[in-house]
Each structure stands twice: as structure tokens, then as C-alpha cells.
């Protein structure tokens, strides 16, 4: 892993290993807050901040944290940074704080952050973890921004609150159903462009506690074997 170039660690998050569109992590905030382009960027940057900080701290402490209790330690570190960003947004950007609502607290359980902590920051140097966090965060922000823009333009006829005077608006796009629909289309387009076969199902990799899970792969194994039997 250490043989990969430094620029690769930063750039992989944008498209090749985009956390949302390719690895299918962090679906909940992707669907929930992207009714407006500005919400998408706000959520993306808040998550990036938490991701970079937690990657840095976890990477710095990776030799100190005992392996058995690493998950609770990671969660506390992440939750601490989430509380910090909650305070900052509440103090300086109240309108964004109100719009993101509960999903700001739920950054704590965002699979991307715990996933990167577990699979990257706990094994790599501080500098690489910083780049990895920045890249992944930017990829996430990019995906959220795309989602938010599409939904806002089609659903409300505005972009960043500016009226675009579109002849037709489809309010369904800013409703919950539109979130699933837009994400489905974007993922299909990404796979069409990269000419890869989309994954059949969201696997255990999307679960933040996958590495310590005793039933790793089993929950899907049950459904897989059934699928084959049919």
C-alpha cells in the first residue's frame, strides 16, 4: 500500500474510489440533506472536516490504541469532532445548522469516517492519512454537490437560491422519492462512463463495524445463497 504515490492517495477519492458513488458509503446523508446545492456543500465540508481531523488523530495514535478496544476509541474521537463542528455551525452558520438538523449529529455514524479510520488511518502515516481524508472528503462533497444541484434545479427551479426561470419544475425531485431516484441515475451514469458492472448489492464493506463483525459477510451470504437457489 505504501508504494502508491502521494498524489494517488489524494486523488483516488474523487472518482476511482469515490466513497458515495463507487464504494456506496454514507448513503443516509447523501439522500437526506441534498435537497439544495448549498446543503450538499455544507454537509460535505462538515464531514470532510471531521474526516480529516479524525484521520489525523487516529493515525497519530495508531500505535497507542490497543487493537481490542479500537472501535470504541475511534467512535469517541469522531463523536468529539462532530460535537465541535456542531458548536461551530450553531454559532456561526445558524441557518445551515437548522437545515442539516439531526444529520449533523449523525456524522458520527457515517460509514465513511469509521471506514477510513479502520481501513486507512489506523495503518498509515499521518501525512498519508491527511491526504486520504482530504481526498475522500472532497469526493463526498463533490457527490453531494452534484446530487444537490440536480435536485434543486429540477425540483425547485433554482440553483444556490437563484431563480433559473425554468419552464417546468418537478417537485418530486426534492421529495424523499426523488433522492433515491437521482442517486440511482447518478450511480448508473458513473458506471456507464467507467464501463464497470455496478455492484449487485451493498455489501458488508458499507458497514462501519465490518472488520470486527463476527458475522462478516454472513448477512449477505444468507441472501446470496437464496438468490442462487432461485
Amino acid at each position: 500500500m505504501n508504494k502508491k504515490s502521494i498524489s494517488y492517495e489524494f486523488l483516488k477519492g474523487f472518482i476511482k474510489e469515490n466513497p458515495t458513488l463507487v464504494m456506496l458509503l454514507g448513503m443516509c446523508p447523501t439522500l437526506a440533506v441534498t435537497t439544495m446545492a448549498s446543503n450538499g456543500i455544507g454537509m460535505g465540508l462538515a464531514t470532510t472536516f471531521v474526516l480529516v481531523c479524525s484521520n489525523l488523530v487516529i493515525s497519530a495514535l495508531r500505535k497507542v490504541i490497543p487493537a481490542e478496544v479500537r472501535l470504541p476509541v475511534f467512535i469517541v474521537i469522531i463523536a468529539g469532532f462532530v460535537t465541535f463542528i456542531e458548536f461551530m455551525l450553531k454559532g456561526y452558520m445558524t441557518s445551515l445548522y437548522d437545515r442539516l438538523g439531526i444529520f449533523l449529529s449523525l456524522i458520527t455514524v457515517n460509514c465513511i469516517i469509521l471506514g477510513r479510520a479502520e481501513s486507512f488511518a489506523s495503518k498509515n502515516s499521518i501525512f498519508r492519512s491527511l491526504l486520504d481524508g482530504l481526498g475522500m472528503g472532497c469526493g463526498f462533497t463533490l457527490a453531494l454537490f452534484t446530487m444537490g444541484s440536480l435536485r434543486e434545479i429540477f425540483g425547485a427551479g433554482t440553483w444556490f437560491g437563484i431563480d433559473l426561470n425554468l419552464p417546468l419544475q418537478i417537485p418530486a425531485f426534492i421529495m424523499p422519492a426523488g433522492g433515491f431516484f437521482t442517486l440511482g441515475i447518478i450511480i448508473a451514469v458513473v458506471y456507464k462512463i467507467t464501463d464497470k458492472k455496478p455492484p449487485v448489492l451493498v455489501g458488508c464493506a458499507c458497514c462501519p463495524i465490518a472488520s470486527s463483525c463476527k458475522s462478516y459477510g454472513k448477512c449477505n451470504e444468507i441472501s446470496e445463497s437464496e438468490g442462487n437457489a432461485e
Binding site: A177, G179, L183, G184, I185, I187, K197, P199, V200, L201
Partner: peptide
């Protein structure tokens, strides 16, 4: 082909959500 798997699942979820 591009819609097989997760994309079609998400679009089905959108209809259930509707």
C-alpha cells in the same frame, strides 16, 4: 447493463418511497 444492481434497486426504492 448500467442500471443492473444498485441503481435499479435505488430506483425501486424511490417508487416504494413514493
Amino acid at each position: 447493463k448500467a442500471f443492473k444492481g444498485v441503481p435499479s434497486t435505488l430506483i425501486a426504492a424511490s417508487i416504494v418511497s413514493l
